[in-house]
């Protein structure tokens, strides 16, 4: 049955990873502006400028 503790640890660490990822994404401001990033990626960079 002790394998359950191993699984428990694994599931908790996965969940913890997502919690940290969530906090990081909030801190990074990913939810601040939902318009510009979506449109920014559609712009083409002109290469031949000169």
């Amino acid at each position: 049955m002790s394998v359950i503790f191993l699984l428990l640890g694994a599931s908790l660490s996965v969940a913890l990873f997502f919690l940290v990822a969530f906090i990081w994404s909030v801190k990074d401001g990913q939810y601040e502006d939902d318009y510009s990033p979506a449109h920014r990626m559609l712009f083409d960079e002109k290469i031949n400028n000169d």
Binding site: E32, D33, D34, Y35, S36, H39, R40, L42, F43, N49
Partner: peptide, 25 residues
């Protein structure tokens, strides 16, 4: 979205400008 594009390409107009980041909302 054109505003966004123009503003973020401001470095073409003034080489001293390094980066422009628009927060649309």
């Amino acid at each position: 979205s054109s505003c966004l594009w123009l503003l973020e390409n401001l470095h073409h107009l003034d080489p001293g400008i390094q980066q422009v980041n628009v927060n649309f909302t």
